[in-house]
Simulated scan of single mutants.
Amino acid sequence: MKRSITRLLMAPSVILLLVWMIVPLSMTVYFSTIRYNLLYPGENNFVGLMNFEFFMTDPGFMPAVLNTLTLLVSVLVITVTLGVALSALIDKPFFGRNIVRVLLISPFFIMPTVNALIWKNMMMNPVYGVFAWISESLGFEPIDWLSSFPLGSVIIMVSWQWLPFAVLVLVTALQSQDTEQKEAAEMDGATSWDIFRYLTIPHLARPIAVVVMIETIFLLAVFAEIFVSTGGGPGYDSTNIAYLIYNQALLQYDVGVASAGGLFAVVLANIVAFFLIRAVGKNLTA
C-alpha cells in the first residue's frame, strides 16, 4: 500500500521529466530525417539518413571531432595536474591562505562569455594585451594568439575557468585525509614527495575521477569561448562539434543537418560517458 502511494506521488514528477527529455529528443530525431532548411520552408520531404551523410561529409566534420577531443583531453590534463598541485600547496597552513583560496576559486564563477572577452581583449590582444606587453618587455615580437594558436588559445581560456572547480573539489577531499598516516610516515623517514606520491595521490583518486567525469560533460559542449574569441577559425582550426552544429543551424539555416549533428553529439557524449562511468566505477569500488 505504501509503495503504491509513493509511486503515485512520484508519478507526476517522473512523467514531467520524461516529457521534458523525450519531446525535444523526438523533435530532433524527426527534423534529422526531413529536408528542413529555413531558406526553403515549403520543402520538408523525408530524406532518411541523408542529413547525417551531409553532416559527416562536411569539410569541417573531422576537424571538429579532432578539435573537440583535443580540447577535452588538453583541458582535463591541465586542470587535473594543476588542480592536484595547487590543492596540495594550499592545503598547508600559511598566512593569507583563505584569501588565496577565494582568488583561486573566483574564475569558476565568471560567465564563459566574459571569460572569453577577458582573455581576448585584455590578455591575448597583440597590440595592448598583457602577453604582448610581456613579449615587448623581453624584446620579442608580440604574438597574435587567436590567429596563430586558435585552438591553444581556447584551451587556455577554458582551462583557466575550470581549474578552480578541480581545485575546489580536490581541496575539499584533502580536508578528509588522515593526518595520522602522514605523521606516521614522517616519523618513519618518508619525504614530502613520498607522502604526496603514496598517500595523497591515492587519496585523491576518487575526487579526480569525479572531476574528470563532470568536466567532460561540459567540455564536450564548449561554445561561448569559441564564438566570442575565434569564431571557429581560422578556417576550421578551432571549430568543435558544438560550433559546427551552430554553423549549420543559424548560419546556413539547415535545421535538418544541424539536428543530425545534434544526434551525433549525443552519441559521442554517451560513448565518452560510458568509458568514464566505467573508470569512475572502478575507482569508487576500489
Score class of each variant (00 low, 15 high):
3 R>G: 14
5 I>E: 14
6 T>E: 11
9 L>K: 11
12 P>A: 11
25 L>Y: 11
27 M>T: 01
30 Y>S: 14
37 N>D: 12
40 Y>M: 14
41 P>Q: 05
56 M>W: 11
59 P>G: 04
64 A>N: 08
65 V>L: 15
65 V>C: 08
67 N>D: 08
71 L>C: 03
77 V>N: 05
80 V>Y: 02
93 P>E: 07
103 L>M: 10
103 L>G: 03
117 L>Q: 05
118 I>A: 03
119 W>E: 10
120 K>I: 15
126 P>K: 13
129 G>P: 11
129 G>A: 06
135 S>W: 01
138 L>Y: 09
138 L>S: 06
144 D>S: 15
158 V>F: 08
162 W>Q: 09
162 W>V: 06
164 P>C: 11
168 L>I: 05
172 T>Y: 07
179 T>M: 02
185 A>T: 13
188 D>V: 07
190 A>Q: 04
209 A>W: 04
215 E>T: 09
221 A>N: 15
229 S>M: 14
231 G>P: 09
232 G>E: 02
236 Y>F: 08
236 Y>H: 01
238 S>C: 10
245 I>P: 10
245 I>Q: 04
247 N>W: 06
251 L>Y: 15
254 D>Y: 09
257 V>I: 05
259 S>C: 06
260 A>C: 02
261 G>S: 11
261 G>A: 00
263 L>S: 06
268 L>A: 13
271 I>T: 14
271 I>D: 10
277 I>F: 13
283 N>I: 15
